[in-house]
Write a protein that binds this DNA or RNA. Structure first.
Length: 340
DNA sequence: AATCCGGGGAG
DNA sequence: CTCCCAGGATT
C-alpha cells in the first residue's frame, strides 16, 4: 500500500520505535497523549533508564515518579501508570495483557492507547484513532462533520479498520499518525505535494483543506486571581500540598489565597495564621496559562521570626524545594526569586 | 455529551 | 492572540 511504503521511507527514528516491546510502547503512548513527540523524547529516555520494566514501575517511590513526570502535564497519567503496573504484576504476571479488552481495562488506557499497544506490540488488527488520524481520514474522505463527535469518530474508526492491511496493523496505524505529523499537518497548511494520498484525497481535489477537519471552537479560559505567599523563616520556606482531585492534584505549592492582596492585607493574613511577621516584600505579578484556566498571581515574600506550626504547612529548606516533586510551574517564577 | 486535566510550540 | 498535540476519566 502506498501509505505504508511512504512510511517506510519517511518514518522518523524515535526511541520507542527501535524496540516495540509492550512496556516501551505503553509508556510512550501514555506520554504522547496530548503531548508532542519532541517534548516526550527526553522524558521517555529518562523514564526508561530509571524504570526499565513493569516491576520497577509498580514499586517506584511516588515522589520519584512525579519527579520523572514533572513538566509533562496531565499528572493523573503517571499516577494511573503506577496503578496499572501494580495490576499487571498481580493479575498478569508482570506482562502486559495481549488483548484489546484487557488493555482497555487498565487505568489510563483508553480506546486509542489500547489500540496502539495491541497493534504495535502484539500485531492485532485494532485501529488507533488519535488527532492525527481524525485529521488525515476526515480530509481524505471529505468528512465535514464535527470530529469531536463520538459518532464521527466511530465512522472514522470503521474506515480505518476496513483499509487496514491485516498483516501489519501496527505499521499501518503508525503510518497514519506519521502522515498527520509530517504531511497532513493542522492549521490548513498540509504539504499535499508530498502526500502519498494526493490523488485520492477528496479535500485536496475539492479545495476543502481549510474546512476539514471541522471542530467546535473552544470556550475561553476563566481567569483566577491569586496571592502567593512565600513565607520564609531563616532557611525554611512554607509549602503545602494541593488537594486531591482537582488541578495539579496532590502537588506542592506555596500557601496562597484567592484574589489579590495589598501589602497591608498580607500583614493581616499573617496575624490570622499566628505568624509574627518581620517584613513583607512585594515580588511582582506573574501569569500562568492552563488549557481552561488562567492564573493571575501577585506574590509577596513574607519573613517571619519562627517556623510556627500552621495546619497543612510544611517547612522545607531551599534545597528541599529543588528536590520536591513537581512544584507547579505556575509558581516557578516565585521559586526562582527566593532561590537567588 | 460536556467538562476537566498541563504545558509548550507554531503560526 | 488561537490552535493543537500518538486522550482519558468523570459526570
Amino acid at each position: 500500500m502506498q501509505l505504508v511504503a511512504w512510511y517506510k521511507n519517511n518514518a522518523r527514528r524515535l526511541p520507542w520505535r527501535d524496540d516495540p516491546a509492550p512496556y516501551k510502547t505503553w509508556i510512550s503512548e501514555i506520554m504522547l497523549q496530548q503531548t508532542k513527540v519532541d517534548t516526550v523524547i527526553p522524558y521517555f529516555k529518562r523514564f526508561m533508564d530509571e524504570l526499565p520494566d513493569v516491576d520497577s514501575l509498580a514499586s517506584v517511590d511516588q515522589d520519584r515518579l512525579f519527579k520523572l513526570w514533572e513538566g509533562l502535564g496531565y499528572y493523573t497519567r503517571c499516577k494511573n501508570l503506577k496503578k496499572a503496573a501494580q495490576i499487571v504484576m498481580q493479575r498478569y504476571g508482570g506482562e502486559l495483557p495481549d488483548d484489546y479488552a484487557s488493555l482497555l481495562s487498565l487505568p489510563g488506557i483508553g480506546p486509542y492507547t489500547a489500540g496502539a499497544v495491541a497493534s504495535i506490540s502484539f500485531g492485532l488488527p485494532t485501529p488507533a484513532i488519535d488527532g492525527n488520524v481524525l485529521r488525515v481520514i476526515s480530509r481524505r474522505y471529505g468528512i465535514k462533520e464535527n470530529i469531536g463527535k463520538i459518532a464521527v469518530k466511530r465512522k472514522i474508526e470503521s474506515l480505518v479498520l476496513d483499509m487496514m492491511p491485516k498483516n501489519e496493523p501496527g505499521t499501518f496505524n503508525q503510518s497514519l499518525m506519521e502522515l498527520g505529523a509530517q504531511v497532513c499537518i493542522p492549521n490548513g497548511k498540509p504539504l499535499c505535494q508530498a502526500c502519498p494520498w494526493e490523488s485520492s484525497c477528496i479535500s485536496y481535489k475539492n479545495g476543502w483543506i481549510d474546512e476539514i477537519p471541522y471542530k467546535d471552537k473552544k470556550k475561553p479560559r476563566r481567569t483566577e486571581a491569586k496571592t502567593i505567599l512565600v513565607v520564609v523563616s531563616n532557611n525554611l520556606v512554607a509549602i503545602q500540598q494541593r488537594i486531591e482531585g482537582g488541578l495539579l492534584s496532590g502537588m506542592w505549592e506555596f500557601p496562597n489565597t484567592e484574589g489579590k492582596m495589598e501589602d497591608g492585607q498580607v500583614q493581616e493574613w499573617g496575624g490570622k495564621n499566628s505568624l509574627h511577621t518581620v517584613s513583607v516584600v512585594p515580588m511582582g505579578e506573574a501569569k500562568h496559562l492552563f488549557s481552561h484556566v488562567e492564573w493571575h498571581m501577585i506574590g509577596y515574600l513574607v519573613e517571619v521570626n519562627d517556623p510556627v506550626h500552621v495546619p497543612g504547612w510544611q517547612w522545607a529548606t531551599l534545597e528541599d524545594l529543588e528536590h520536591r516533586f513537581a512544584l507547579p510551574s505556575a509558581l516557578d517564577h516565585y521559586k526562582s526569586m527566593i532561590l537567588k
